[in-house]
């Protein structure tokens, strides 16, 4: 192969800069006020955590410790390590009054949202893999009923938009079964991703040479034993890169759970935009956070592919 001319790379950089400049020029045209300085506080809050009084009561302050004696009787409660005490000794406070603040860094709404997104994705991935494996086996089953059921599942799910499925799960199933937003979100994402996993598993199984099943059966193994010990291990190994790719999609698709009463990364972004009117900075930040997640996953996938190529 001929060595590449490094000038092409320079062209890439130039084009990216050009597009960036265009975007910047466009925002100037609409008089957009860039306020990047406000973004970090949504990632990490340095203001400290407020400590609220749980009940009405009288406080006793000694140093950094506050002792609250409830007005209506009961055990006094102790709050240690209040760095900024905002009440004075002997003061009467009411429920939800601020007692003081604990110093330190707490995760801001974007990081909290990222954590929710991670949790939803992880749970959904587990269930999607189980569901997809079962449906994938159904697709290649000798039993017509199993084959049909699996085909119906896959076609229904792949033929309808995820957002519509989310609405159905949340507003219909969620109401009937009284599901929380989190459970409904995980359910919808698992069922959706499971259909794609099923197709990956099916093509993985079909990719294993027929001779493998034959050899196993000729040794007296049952269909299931042959599947379990001979075909599936090879099929899943082949499918790993595609499965990893699907899990990247899952992370991105999880942004749609923000329609449910669930503050994931996307919903957190929306709430911040609503209160700050800084949509560009916030959405760019949110996008970057998704990119970090999916980027980490794809680096992992590439390592996996390289490792498997050596095996």
């Amino acid at each position: 192969m001929r060595p590449e001319n490094p000038a092409w790379r320079l062209l890439t950089v130039a084009l990216v800069l050009l597009i960036g400049a265009g975007l910047y020029w466009a925002t100037i045209k609409v008089n957009y006020q860039w306020r990047w300085d406000r973004v970090p506080e949504y990632l990490l809050m340095t203001g400290g955590e407020e400590v609220l009084s749980p009940v009405d009561g009288t406080v006793a302050v000694s140093g950094k410790q506050i002792i609250l004696t409830p007005l209506l009787g009961g055990e006094p409660q102790t709050f240690p390590q209040i760095d900024v005490v905002q009440v004075s000794d002997g003061e009467i406070v009411f429920a939800n009054n601020t007692l003081g603040k604990k110093a330190g860094v707490t995760p801001g709404p974007l990081l909290v949202g990222l954590w929710v997104t991670l949790q939803i994705s992880a749970w959904s991935l587990v269930f999607a893999l189980v569901l997809g494996l079962i449906a994938g086996l159904g697709r290649v089953s000798a039993n017509p009923a199993a084959r049909d059921m699996a085909a119906i599942y896959v076609e229904l799910i792949r033929g309808t938009p995820l957002l519509v499925q989310m609405f159905i799960v949340y507003f219909f199933l969620g109401t009937v079964l009284n599901l929380s937003g989190f459970v409904a979100g995980v359910a919808a994402l698992s069922v959706f991703t499971g259909a794609y996993v099923a197709e990956i598993v099916r093509s993985g199984i079909e990719g294993v040479s027929k001779g493998q099943m034959e050899a196993a059966r000729s040794l007296g193994m049952s269909h299931w034993q042959a599947m379990r010990h001979v075909v599936l291990p090879q099929a899943l190994k082949r499918s790993l890169p595609a499965l990893a790719g699907q899990s990247i999609n899952l992370v991105k698709d999880s942004s749609l759970v923000s329609i449910m009463a669930l503050t994931d990364l996307t919903k957190a972004g929306r709430e911040i935009v609503a209160s700050t009117f800084s949509p560009f900075e916030v959405w760019f930040t949110v996008a970057l956070m998704y990119l970090v997640l999916t980027g980490a996953l794809s680096v992992f996938v590439r390592r996996l592919e390289k490792k498997m190529a050596h095996d």
Binding site: S209, Q212, E214, A215, S218, L219, V230, P233, Q234
Partner: peptide, 12 residues
Amino acid sequence: GMVFQQFNLFPH
């Protein structure tokens, strides 16, 4: 016992 033209050993 059966022996195949393509061996069909389990590669994993």
